[in-house]
Design a protein around this nucleic acid. Structure first.
Lengths: 336, 336
DNA sequence: GCTAACAACGTTAGCGTTAACGTAACACCC
DNA sequence: GGGTGTTACGTTAACGCTAACGTTGTTAGC
């Protein structure tokens, strides 16, 4: 039985020191003279040494991995959140392992099971709605857990996000104040994206409070591609009944909806109002500035990562952090 | 010194069998009677057993992880490629660990170093251009390696992608055939995205072959957001000189460019032609079907993953696979 | 009734690393 | 010169799991 790969034992032999000294030298912890350390590093390099993280994580009973679960990559929102988080983690020496659930709770459950077998330093989930089992397992594992994008009064551990219901109210009330009274909504099928559902409730609430307003008509599309789904949802709404303002799940869908309106000869905002969500890059280049809500996506990532790092290091902090959403009064709704 | 977590030893004691039997039962390999297997699984469940992948990977000297390196998440192209790959891997019991390099070769190098410490079952890189060290380390590690999106005559191991130079020629020649002769290009700064650079060379080549054509004027933007970058690049081009057709790095940038044209009162396609790339979802909802090139993104993912799996299982296959790109003759260039 | 074959287990020896503890050498201080 | 630190190491025993091989019991075949 022969050794095949070079490990710290081989380095130790080559340097005539103990394995422990090599381990210390490679990790950069104290207890080794600078002379020896640099010699050991040189030898490691020469032997093409590649550390074995599996062995390290086993010995330390915890890995420097942060697991991140997102619903989808096909959404600029999560690209922004990620870019906010990744930098912070990498700076602190953690690697992130990302996966998507495609809005499927079972996939999330499987992912958590799989993730925990790696003994991660922390876990990040999207949203506040998780199966009872997922919550139980994460809490039992004692792994620091961060929930992002949505906020909960009873997070698994800590959470950072926005209040989606309130965001819905904000854009809903704005439309109400502009005199709209026949609202429509185009999003995903109910139950799929619970954050979007919460916003819809906020919008409904805003209109329900006004006498003479019709309830919000909804059309839900589950296509993976936002632009097409927005256009298709708008078409469906147009076929079914007249609305004077339509809210969309996000800006990309809203743009798809605008294109459908244009195709049908509807002028924006004269004939119909359009309200997006998120204030994505797209909205800035349109000839009509879109009415939408600016969500602090990058900040959610940064604040979340920072708090989670503190949590990993044992610092207790605020369990739930709500970041503000700002309305953008654009030109796709009628002027005041 | 006490045991804290429950491992297969605890299960073995509770079930009055050896650790090895538990290991076999949990892994679902043969050598255990069905009666015992189900009993062991029940006990494992009851004891809240969570497998330890670090220990398993250490013992097996290889993990069931596939590392995937992408340039960015802020690009629908890679979301499509990913969705094509992920399904295949998960079906085969592999987890994917995704990271982005943000087009930075050093970040890629660091990522490879980090990845190899996990002893992955395979590694996937984007593009064919990697530092000499990265190539050496991956080859020395014997880890099956797949390069996607671009193709190379000398891949590290295997590759699946499209011929970007040829794709550039295809859209370039199409524009030449339509009679355009003052071309422009809006993309990323040269050297950042080597695939886009190859396409630009193809476009240039197409125009260079035609007498009377001006060389391609270029504008490069490095903003992370495609729509804004496309608009800004177009503005820059308009400020500098007249062009009769503009190629963009991708469809989203092209749309940004179209909006800039509209702002300046330029009609499409009467005053200026617009050519995108990728045939993303967006192009289907526009009132003017965009002239672009359809790239087989999902198929790259599927074919790549399948070939890589074969490679993991020791099956030798074609080292380089080139998939076709189809021109979409839209309405943002003048009719024939 | 003996052997061969096989299924169903158990034993042993690692996998590469680190934590915890031990030790030798030397300095320092009255 | 005895006690007390401090620095720079070394030794030992895990960490949780699996590969390889060994053992036992049962059945089949003649």
């Amino acid at each position: 039985m022969r050794r095949r790969t070079t490990g710290i034992r081989e380095i130790a032999e080559a340097a005539s020191v103990s394995m422990m000294t090599v381990s210390r030298a490679l990790r950069g912890v104290e207890g080794v003279s600078e002379t020896k350390r640099s010699e050991i590093l040189r030898i490691a390099q020469r032997l093409n040494y590649v550390a074995n993280n599996n062995a390290r994580s086993l010995a330390m009973e915890n890995s420097r991995i942060v697991g991140i679960s997102l619903p989808t990559f096909a959404n600029d929102v999560f690209a922004d959140v990620l870019s906010g988080m990744r930098g912070t983690f990498e700076g602190a020496g953690y690697s992130s392992v990302i996966d998507t659930t495609e809005y499927n709770p079972e996939a999330e459950h499987r992912w958590v099971d799989q993730m925990l077998t790696w003994r991660p330093a922390a876990v990040i989930l999207t949203g506040k709605d998780h199966s009872r089992e997922v919550r139980r397992k994460l809490r039992a594992s004692k792994v620091p857990t961060l929930e992002i994008w949505d906020v909960s009064e009873d997070p698994i551990d800590i959470c950072v996000g926005i209040d989606h219901y309130n965001a819905g109210q904000i854009i809903g009330r704005y439309a109400v104040d502009l005199g709209y009274h026949a609202p429509g909504y185009v999003g995903a099928p109910l139950g799929r994206d619970t954050r979007a559902d919460a916003r819809l409730r906020g919008i409904r609430e805003a209109f329900a409070a006004v006498p003479g307003s019709r309830p919000v008509r909804i059309a839900g599309r589950s296509e993976p591609h936002a632009f097409g789904a927005g256009a298709a949802g708008m078409e469906e709404l147009l076929r079914r009944e007249r609305t004077d303002v339509v809210f969309f799940l996000n800006d990309h869908m809203a743009f798809g909806g605008m294109m459908a309106c244009q195709k049908h000869g509807l002028r924006i905002p004269e004939d119909i109002g359009i309200v997006g969500f998120n204030a994505l890059d797209l909205t800035a280049v349109l000839p009509l500035q879109m009415t939408t809500a600016m969500t602090p996506r990058k900040r959610i990532g940064v604040v979340g990562a920072r708090n989670l790092l503190a949590r990993i290091h044992g610092v207790e902090s605020q369990r739930a952090i709500v970041l503000p959403v700002h309305l953008i009064e654009g030109q796709t709704t009628r002027p005041q």
